[in-house]
Write a protein that binds this DNA or RNA. Structure first.
Length: 877
RNA sequence: GGACGCGUAGCUCAGCUGGUUAGAGCACCGCCUUCACACGGCGGGGGUCGGAGGUUCGAGUCCUCUCGCGUCCACCA
């Protein structure tokens, strides 16, 4: 036992009345000024923890779901930093793509017309919301592509400022010197370079093929952007005419009758077997089509025989391809029936031409009504339409059902039609560590369900252009088979504004000249490269070597099929590796009715209001309670609890650090002073907690780490602090007090660090009262050091002492006395180990319960008997 | 149609490889006022763990079936 007085330390600044107000601003500024979260570029790869942060879409406002999932990542980042890693934690902004285009169109009331020339004098218009009523009536202003892109850049820059402010307020430990935007020059260069390399390795190709087409956006859509919506429709039973009589098909899309190329039934279907190989004639148009057999025809569906049109749905495409049928397309890019009469209709004679003339130029919806009318008149529609609801494919951002049209597009191989590549990508999914593990199934479902390669070209304006031109032949037509590629050193290029090597602008569009590829890349074609963009692939080789492959991709589960998968594809093709070792999948934030919170549902919470109301630590506390992959209810109650926790941390710290009468003499970190069994017991329990929290964090289970830490902390405040208070003030002499004070400081330092990933502001505040530097760069607590300090401490001492104190409190509460009411006697009967443990803490129980005597005896039946004093004139009053 | 997840107190959730009497917070009820904390403290009531079988000395936990909710995927004529 040490008898030396503790070494005095410089005076600490423990505030008289600590509070949470203003902590975000104050510490946010200090962290920025001190570069607390700066990435250390000297660190070798093994000492780096790199995070592929999801770039939020900059086309509106951040919502509470963002706050939720970004907090999860931040707790991991902070943990890894305290474990000694150089954390590479950049932030990106996803300003590329359709959401931005739409926002700009609406915000400024403009439309892009790519045929217009650039107008350098075009000024940023006043937002629609600022305009007068009359001004709003003016027609949309048509502007050139380059002017449009400039407007996109202008608006997103404004949004990005607001986003960064919110993230800083939330306390994300991002290195703000390393932000990127998915439309900035570096991202464009990376996207174009990656594409050119894909092209050179034959991983990218162009093809004239049927694509899913949004008739409003007039743009191709990829499989990953589809969603099914239940729509009303109707079966129409329609007669085709064969030599042996009429054949009835049932269809939901009678308006495509003119596009029919064959009928199809299952090979084993005895009803139709005699027809296979024969031809029948279509109603209205009298076009001869063959009857085919194919496995995909379902005898149970409709009449068991279907008409194949080019194209009504994806099954039509399969039949068309596998049965080698002709193409008869009648739906134009604008979603209307072609206005020119196709030649196969002309061949059907006057009646056919007349019928088609009634449909030409109408929308598919109008065409359907007209076709039904015509069929009814001709007697070829049996019975009326039978209403049904059925799933129909939509672009996830679109308003009308997708059509399928044939057009020339760029594709990237993704295993959709290559079994070896598919197997390799499934293997990548297996190598990746998923948190939680069951999310891998979604990846596998998706990869196994791919039905084609990745369509990466989009007929839009605000995006990364393809760095490609085409020669124009003497006939004035572009020669797509011989693309002219940009040189890597020239990237990024805009082929609609720049000219290919060896050409000049006067040759654009001229016979013998060139044209630029008019399309831009799918937004995912850039987003799938965020690891390469963030780590400086091809831009900063040194950084790249220190940070790639990355350690963590955090993201939401609904975009596993898009973002996670496409990123895995790009990395596999370019680097033959995974882009990251781990992925943590966050759940959704649900409103109290268990519905996903989203803007379109109008149930979003504005995060800044909540941050200001409860404080960032409190909001983070709520978020960190949402376990990985688990949908979590939006719960202000939890934010209140978080706020209370933060306040408790302030007050408990004030107590622990305010002992010793302000002279500083008793303040110490000399652990040899910890001699009291209760103090050692508490430290032994704390060591177990550190092990638990560390294990949980290593498994990406931040929620568990928080829960364990919090639960210990409340027991610490309610029980340990009460048990030790009198002794810490000196009731049992200096050495007993020093033991308490040293244990309090060690435990407080440990708990501040355990809480630091969750409550960065309040922990930093308390840390600053008595420690140098930032708690966020302090080392993560070490259980073995605590065990050394605890010596042979038995956690049971803490438990049984707390139980005895609890019984005394209960007796006082039930007798309606204050907690300071004196106790004559506490008699504890229990089994031997617990009795022994209690005897070690007997003096602390007596002190804290204000008891005249506490005795512990071994017995079979455990009881605690508390005898209160008659009047408040017992000991120590 | 296939797959995954979830059903534990009024609410939000812990309960990990099966082990005394199923836990926490919120809410509710009662009590205590200020020497860390009234933005507080102490205590209390409240659950046949969705249902039915099974394995086991023992099941909230493992197996089978089943019901409900959510989500992802699917070639939806």
């Amino acid at each position: 036992m040490s008898t030396a007085a503790p070494t005095p330390r410089p005076a600490w600044s423990v505030p008289e009345k600590p509070g949470l107000e203003g902590l975000e601003e104050r510490w946010g500024r200090v962290w920025e000024d001190d570069g607390t979260y700066r990435f250390d570029r000297r660190a070798e790869r093994d000492d780096v923890y790199s995070i592929d942060t999801p770039p939020p879409t900059v086309s509106g406002s951040l919502h509470v779901g963002h706050v939720f999932s970004y907090t999860h990542t931040d707790t991991i980042a902070r943990y890894q930093r305290m474990r000694g890693k150089a954390v590479f934690y950049p932030m990106g902004w996803d300003d590329n793509g359709l959401p931005t285009e739409r926002r700009v169109q609406n915000y400024y009331d403009v439309l892009c017309d790519p045929s217009l020339p650039y107008d350098p004098s075009f000024a940023v218009p006043e937002p629609v919301s600022e305009r007068s009523k009359d001004e709003r009536k003016a027609p949309k202003v048509q502007i050139s592509r380059r002017n449009f892109v400039e407007l996109c850049n202008h608006l997103t820059a404004e949004d990005e400022v607001a986003f960064e402010e919110l993230w800083r307020h939330l306390g994300l430990s991002v290195d703000w010197s390393m932000t990127y935007a998915t439309i900035d020059e570096r991202s464009q260069r990376v996207a174009q370079r990656a594409f050119l390399r894909n092209l050179q390795r034959d991983e990218a190709y162009q093809a004239e093929a049927p694509v899913l087409w949004d008739v409003d956006f007039r743009c191709a859509v990829a499989q990953a952007e589809l969603e099914d919506r239940e729509q009303p429709g109707a079966y129409h039973r329609i007669a085709f005419h064969g030599p042996g009589g009429d054949v009835f098909i049932e269809t939901t899309r009678p308006e495509l009758l003119a596009a029919c190329v064959a009928l199809v039934a299952h090979p084993t279907d005895e009803r139709y077997q005699p027809l296979f190989g024969t031809t029948v004639r279509s109603p209205l148009f009298d076009v001869e089509v063959e009857v085919k057999a194919h496995e995909l025809a379902d005898p149970e569906k409709g009449s068991g025989i279907a008409m194949i049109c080019t194209f009504g749905d994806l099954t039509d495409v399969i039949w068309w391809r596998e049965l080698q049928l002709p193409t008869r397309s009648i739906v134009a890019e604008n979603g209307r029936i072609a206005s020119d009469t196709p030649d196969w209709i002309t061949a059907g004679g006057e009646a056919a031409v007349a019928a088609f003339a009634q449909l030409a130029g109408t929308s598919v919806k109008q065409a359907q009504a007209k076709t039904v009318e015509l069929l009814a008149e001709s007697g070829e529609l049996e019975g009326g339409p039978k209403p049904i609801t059925h799933p129909v494919k939509f672009f996830e951002k679109g308003d009308r059902p997708l059509e399928i049209i044939t057009s020339r597009q760029w594709y990237l191989r993704n295993g959709g039609r290559d079994l070896d590549l598919r197997a390799a990508l499934l293997q990548r999914g297996h190598e990746l560590h998923w948190h939680p593990p069951h999310m891998r199934v979604r990846y596998e479902n998706w990869v196994n369900g791919l039905n084609g390669d990745w369509l990466v070209s989009r007929q839009r304006f605000f995006g990364v252009p393809f760095p490609i031109w085409y020669p124009v032949g003497p006939d004035g037509l572009a020669d797509h088979a011989h693309p002219i590629l940009a040189a890597e050193v020239d990237l990024p290029v805009d082929p609609s504004a720049e000219v290919p090597p060896g050409h000049d602008e006067s040759q654009r569009g001229q016979p013998g000249g060139f044209v630029g590829d008019p399309d831009v890349m799918d937004t995912w074609a850039t987003s799938s490269l965020t690891p390469q963009i963030a780590t400086g692939w091809g831009e900063d080789d040194d950084l790249f070597a220190r940070t790639f492959p990355m350690d963590l991709r955090p993201q939401a589960h609904e975009i596993i099929r898009t973002w996670l998968f496409s990123t895995a594809v790009r990395s596999h093709l370019e680097h033959d590796s995974l882009p990251w070792r781990n992925t943590s999948i966050s759940g959704w934030v649900l409103d109290p009715d268990r519905k996903k919170m989203s803007k379109s549902k109008g149930n979003v919470e504005t995060p800044m209001d909540r941050l200001e109301q409860y404080g960032a630590d409190a909001v983070r506390y709520w978020a960190a309670n949402g376990r990985p992959g688990t949908d979590t209810a939006f719960d202000e109650g939890q934010m209140k609890v978080g706020r209370r926790l933060a306040i408790k941390l302030l007050n408990a710290s004030r107590f622990a650090l305010g002992l010793g009468g302000g002279d500083g003499a008793a303040r110490t970190t000399d652990l040899s002073l910890v001699t009291e069994p209760l103090d050692r017991a508490m430290l032994a329990r704390l060591a177990e907690l550190v092990d638990d929290a560390t294990t949980a964090f290593d498994a990406y289970d931040y929620a568990r780490a928080l829960e364990r830490t919090e639960s210990f902390f409340w027991a610490y405040c309610d029980q340990y602090l009460e048990l030790v208070k009198g002794r810490a003030y000196g009731a049992r002499g200096d050495e007993a007090a020093w033991s308490a004070q040293a244990a309090l400081q060690l435990s407080l330092s440990t708990m501040l660090r355990l809480f630091a990933p969750f409550l960065p502001f309040v922990t930093e505040e308390v840390w600053s009262w008595w420690q140098d530097g930032s708690v966020h760069t302090a080392p993560w607590p070490d259980a073995s050091g605590l065990r050394d300090a605890a010596a042979d401490g038995d956690p049971l001492v803490f438990e049984v002492a707390a139980a005895a104190l609890g019984e005394a409190r209960k007796a006082k509460t039930e007798a309606k006395r204050t907690l300071k009411w004196p106790v004559d006697a506490i008699v504890v009967i229990d089994r031997e180990p617990r009795v022994r443990a209690l005897r070690a803490g007997l003096d602390d129980v007596r002190e804290s319960a204000n008891a005249a005597s506490v005795t512990a005896e071994v017995g079979e039946v455990a009881t605690i008997t508390v005898t209160l004093a008659e009047a408040p004139d017992g000991p120590d009053v």
